[in-house]
């Protein structure tokens, strides 16, 4: 699957990709809220009025990635969201409780369903094709990416828009106990929206392709070495070919990076959650960053230039959902 367009809204100024690679900064607040672009540059104000910030982020990232791919529309829209539209869920729940189930406005309820983002994208770009939303916590984006892979096998000429979106609110931060988690682990709770336009055909702008994806659940007995080697074998790659590993380690004293250093002593191991925070679809941020590193041949906050052909994303969400995504230069 070739990445023909990509866009990322995150805690960083990632819409401007050059700026991000030069200026990426640590998140220093328990809630790593997104730096949101000027939405009215991308979405009509009539639509914007009803949208929660998660839907705005999603629709905007989708719009930019289509622009970058030079595509007017796509054949399929596949999204992943672990939390769904929590902002509107919270609004409707509060109103329901406060008004004791009487005289409620339907707006927040309408916008609260998990497929709101994919539905709005279909509406904006008149995509009557395949449309799906996955909600499997820390595997939501991976499920969407895997479906894109299946869809492109079944429809070889197709263009697929695939993305991961999660929004945070102050309520969610409290419910997740983000402050306590930040004190303990030094990683903030994050949010963001990342979209890719994928197809089997390379365009003039194509710099990277997705080689493989694998999902599994965490257990203490995981043999990372075997897991990674088996995965790479499926994509005809050896560990020595991996130039960069983007690691989704979470706790400060995490063992994941130590393991990775042992397995791939020659690779640059870079933890990515210090930039985007921890969230269900943070792996979509990592895939965007992997593609950016290949494109720019630069790693954020590292002065030395590198030659990067292959990047492996190793993610774990809260020691539950784990995944590998391999991408390479093309």
């Amino acid at each position: 699957m070739y990445i023909n367009g990509k866009a990322c809204i995150s805690h960083q100024n990632s819409v401007e990709e050059d700026f991000f690679i030069e200026q990426a900064a640590l998140s220093s607040n328990p809630l790593a809220k997104a730096q949101e672009p000027l939405y009215k540059n991308y979405i009509s104000s009539t639509l914007l009025r009803r949208m929660s910030h998660g839907v705005k982020m999603g629709a905007t990232a989708a719009t930019i990635s289509l622009q970058k791919a030079g595509a007017e529309t796509v054949d399929a829209v596949i999204t992943g969201t672990g939390l769904g539209c929590f902002e509107d869920t919270d609004v409707f729940l509060r109103e329901l409780i406060t008004n004791q189930e009487q005289t409620l406005s339907p707006t927040a309820f309408i916008q609260s369903t998990h497929n709101t983002i994919a539905g709005q994208i279909a509406l904006i770009f008149k995509c009557h094709g395949y449309n799906l939303t996955y909600t499997q916590q820390g595997h939501s984006f991976e499920n969407a990416l895997f479906d894109a892979h299946l869809f492109l096998k079944e429809n070889e000429q197709a263009k697929v828009l695939v993305g991961g979106v999660d929004e945070i609110t102050d309520s969610y931060g409290q419910l997740f106990e983000a402050e306590e988690a930040f004190k303990k682990n030094k990683v903030a709770l994050g949010e963001g929206a990342v979209f890719f336009v994928l197809s089997n055909t390379k365009t003039v702008n194509t710099k990277a392709k997705v080689e493989g994806i694998s999902m599994f659940l965490y257990s203490k007995e995981i043999e990372w070495q075997k897991k990674i080697t088996d995965f790479l074998k499926e994509t005809n790659t050896t560990i020595s070919e991996i130039d960069v590993i983007l690691s989704g380690n979470y706790k400060k004293e995490d063992v994941l990076n130590e393991e990775l250093e042992k397995i791939a002593p020659l690779a640059n191991i870079v933890s990515f959650k210090k930039w985007c925070g921890e969230y269900f679809t943070a792996s979509s941020f990592a895939l965007w960053l992997a593609a950016l590193i290949i494109e720019q041949q630069k790693i954020p906050q590292q002065i030395k230039t590198v030659s990067v052909k292959k990047v492996l994303v190793v993610n774990q969400y809260q020691y539950s959902e784990c995944s590998f995504i391999l991408i390479s230069a093309c």
Binding site: G82, L83, G84, T113, H114, N115, A118, N131, L132, T133, Y134, T135, Q136, Q137, H139, S140, N143, Y172, L175, F176, M215, F216, L217
Partner: peptide
């Protein structure tokens, strides 16, 4: 309650109950 709030939790629990591990997901298109 937030840890059991998410839409996919039921799938993970039920799959675990029956020892299903090769592919587990939840779809939410209303």
């Amino acid at each position: 309650f937030i840890d059991t709030h998410y839409t996919g939790v039921h799938a993970q629990e039920v799959a675990k109950h029956f020892g299903i591990t090769d592919y587990v997901t939840t779809i939410s298109t209303a």
